[in-house]
Design a protein around this nucleic acid. Structure first.
Length: 764
DNA sequence: AACGGGAGGATTTTT
DNA sequence: TCCTCCCGTT
């Protein structure tokens, strides 16, 4: 125990050893959050307050879950495999497999990833003759997912106009289609589990009693449904249930666009009557100037729980700021600085280039490539999302559940076997007539189409029979052969990579079996033995004895089903194993949770970062500011910020102003590598602006600024001096004439709003 | 069925 | 600019 707790600072120690009450840990960037979370679990177990089976730890990503397991097994001499540590989706998958009957799902239900879901919706719209101009599939998908993320079914929604009524109708039809086909999308995993537990009292109470300690990572990223899910399991409002230990950072909430609700933090504090709010403010990552920049910037946000990072590491180096003429020269500058860093002994993998949007990476990539500097771009297609891999997966899905129409349609004519659009239309008509799956409708199609379709069914049936007793990797190999996918790509000019990817699937299967604790030789098709139950038996409303959805997965699903869920829930790495010793390029979003000795934050221009679309969203700029905060706090030792006067975007040259975030950073923490131009800078910029052909948003922005500054005699971006507050920069101007007020950032003296007709300001 | 031309769109992302 | 999607042609 001494070992477990030593080296924790006071804040961390307090969090780890909190009594059994709901707690909210405000964990700043680089404050040892994961350490606190894992040590808390270890401490609870080691002090005998809970057994490993009483722990439920939830994360958002598989990576975070794995990290937690790894650290835990290093701390505790127990087998972590039996512990419930996983992603929301992974845990729901496990619960739904076990209780599939109560959840009204086939045990082999398959999981749609986003691509699958979109094609399912496209198919639905076609089947119901919906005008996809008026109801674009993507929009329908957002609508459905948005509703599910709030825990709403179609019948829960009160449509406020005809269009919405149609969407609600489509939502219902979509759910019907999924149910018919035995498939479940990501949001459905959560919602179905939530409904299962809320409707089934014995089941709910069983898990409420079992999970005495529920720990949640990245709590600021939870959506409404996830919070409801947690409340349900924690038995909120009832006598039963466990203690919720939530760890998060409201300042790092950057996923509102996908439904995350930071408000869950304060809601949790209120609803669970949290007495234990602990702030982890000691930062072990960044040097002082970098933290100062982060702290001062984020102080501009109004809705915060409040937190200030501190470090023992000293000031370190100032943040370097560079203004480039163009995106090309920005890239060139990055190359030069990167070369310097490497010459000084920096490892390439300790250099990160961050940008707001993916479109910005191209120019920088090009420059790095020309300079012969190895780099790795994050993002892009993941292994299980590649077309050829998805095709193979579709064949495997048909092995497991031939009534999955999505999988059927994907490969019925791939590789080509003469089953065209007409054949499919005939088949679809038959399926609709009898209300059955496409696969089941094949015998009803006559003629030539019927013969080729029957051939396909024979292929599936034959392969299924042939692989009956095979272990998973062997089954995968046979499916790759029998489907003629390998043969098909062998004839393609560029097929070598695809074949390699397909063959990799055999080893992926082997690796999966060992990771999940399946015997390597277990027949892939075979379901779990009915006796392989663990945990307490519980009885549902019908008096059936049901088993606890305990780990490992092998007890609740066949190796094949498990592998298929794995393929959907864990999309795999992006791209082939990139060389480790490479400059890391990624969006700010994907940099969350990572850290580097040297960080470049590029494209810091109004309209890009903060992004122009953010101004239209509720609290959009605050979210962008949090994003900037995340970006800054990635850096350990050296941070570079850059912006450019002109940038080629969407085929047009744009003239941007430097990001407002520069005006929100403390002067003393910055070192301008190029002259900081103002106020003449603004004039020069405005001239360039006037000369250049304006595109929509430039005009809007110029107009907005003109409106704001008209008649005040002051301009946004201008440097001023005040007798009391010292030097500052005008960040914003509101109102006009005698009512005009300027928001001025006085750096160390803070942000002030001054009445321009009263305050005595001097131009600098 | 495969290819090409044209139109339109283009934050951010995990599961 | 550059990628994706759809439609029309071979």
């Amino acid at each position: 125990m001494q070992n477990l707790l030593h080296n924790l600072n006071d804040e961390q120690l307090a969090a780890v050893t909190l009594p059994s009450q709901s707690a909210l840990i405000l964990a700043g960037a680089g404050s040892g959050k994961t350490r606190v979370l894992t040590t808390r679990i270890a401490w609870l177990i080691q002090t005998g307050q809970v057994s490993p089976s009483g722990i439920l730890a939830v994360t958002f990503t598989n990576k975070a879950a794995k990290e937690m397991l790894t650290r835990l097994s290093a701390m505790l001499p127990i087998n972590t495999r039996g512990m419930w540590i996983g992603t929301f989706h992974g845990l729901c998958n496990r619960l739904l497999r076990t209780h599939h009957r109560d959840a009204a799902l086939p045990q082999t239900f398959q999981i749609l990833d986003t691509q699958d879901q979109l094609s399912a919706i496209k198919r639905l719209l076609k089947a119901h003759n919906v005008d996809d101009e008026k109801f674009p599939p993507k929009e329908v998908m957002y609508f459905i997912n948005g509703a599910k993320d709030q825990g709403l079914r179609a019948h829960d929604i009160e449509p406020y106009n005809a269009d919405e009524r149609k969407k609600v109708e489509l939502y219902q039809l979509y759910d019907d289609q999924c149910q018919r086909e035995g498939v479940v999308d990501f949001a459905e995993l959560l919602l179905r589990t939530y409904e299962l537990l809320s409707r089934n009292q014995p089941l709910r109470e069983h898990y409420q009693q079992r999970f005495q300690h529920i720990l949640v990572d990245e709590f600021q990223d939870t959506n409404d449904l996830q919070y409801k899910w947690l409340k349900l399991l924690a038995g909120h409002g009832g006598q039963r249930g466990g203690v919720l230990f939530a760890v998060g950072d409201d300042d790092q909430s950057i996923y509102a666009f996908r439904g995350a609700n930071v408000g869950n933090m304060s809601a949790f504090e209120r609803e669970f009557n949290v007495k234990n709010l602990i702030k982890l403010e000691q930062n072990y990552r960044s040097h002082g100037y970098i933290l100062d920049a982060a702290n001062v910037l984020i102080a501009n946000n109004s809705k915060r729980l409040g937190k200030n990072l501190r470090t023992d590491a000293g000031h370190g180096e100032q943040v370097r700021v560079y203004e480039a003429n163009s995106d090309l020269s920005e890239a060139q500058w990055i190359i030069e600085e990167t070369k310097n860093l490497i010459a000084e002994g920096a490892s390439r993998s300790e250099i990160a280039v961050l940008y707001r949007s993916n479109a910005q990476s191209r120019v920088i990539e090009h420059a790095l490539f020309s300079a012969g500097i190895p780099y790795h771009v994050y993002g892009g297609l993941r292994y299980f999302q590649r077309a050829e891999v998805k095709h193979a997966i579709a064949y495997l899905q048909l092995m497991d559940n031939p009534h999955n129409d999505s999988a059927f349609l994907r490969v019925v004519n791939f590789p080509a076997r003469g089953i065209g659009v007409r054949s499919i239309e005939t088949l679809q008509a038959a399926a609709d007539q009898y209300g059955i799956s496409l696969y089941a409708a094949v015998p009803y199609v006559t003629g030539k189409a019927g013969t080729s379709l029957a051939g396909f069914v024979k292929l599936i049936e034959g392969t299924r029979f042939e692989t009956q007793q095979m272990a998973l990797p062997e089954l995968v190999r046979v499916v790759l052969e029998q489907s003629t996918l390998l043969a098909h790509y062998a004839t393609e000019k560029e097929g070598a990579d695809r074949i390699e990817n397909l063959e990799q699937m055999v080893s992926a299967a082997t690796q999966f079996l060992s990771e999940e604790g399946y015997g390597q030789g277990a027949p892939a098709h075979l379901g779990p033995p009915a006796q392989a139950q663990s945990g307490l038996p519980v009885v549902n409303e019908d008096g059936f004895e049901i088993l606890d959805a305990d780990a490992p997965l092998a007890t609740v699903m066949s190796p094949l089903s498990a592998f298929l869920s794995h393929a959907s829930l864990e999309a795999g790495d992006n791209q082939a194993a990139a060389s480790q010793e490479a400059v890391q390029m990624m969006t700010v979003h994907s940099a969350k949770g990572l850290e580097f000795n040297n960080v470049f934050i590029t494209g810091l221009e109004e309209g890009l970062f903060p992004h122009e679309s953010s101004s239209r969203e509720h609290d959009g700029v605050e979210e962008e500011r949090r994003l900037m905060y995340v970006a800054i706090t990635r850096a350990r030792q050296r941070l570079y910020l850059s912006f450019t006067q002109t940038r080629m975007l969407h085929g047009q040259t744009r003239y941007n102003m430097k990001s407002r975030f520069f005006d929100e950073l403390p002067e003393e923490a910055l070192k301008w590598l190029t002259p900081k131009m103002q106020p003449s800078w603004f004039g020069a910029r405005k001239a360039a602006w006037d000369e250049a052909p304006m595109v929509g948003n430039d005009k809007a922005l110029a107009q907005q600024i003109a409106n704001k500054t008209s008649g005040t005699g002051w301009r946004i971006g201008e440097s001023v001096a005040h007798a009391k507050f010292g030097e500052g920069v005008i960040v914003n101007i509101e109102g006009s004439g005698n009512n005009a007020r300027a928001q001025i950032n006085f750096g160390a003296a803070g942000m002030k709003v001054l009445d321009l007709s009263i305050a005595k300001l001097d131009r600098l």
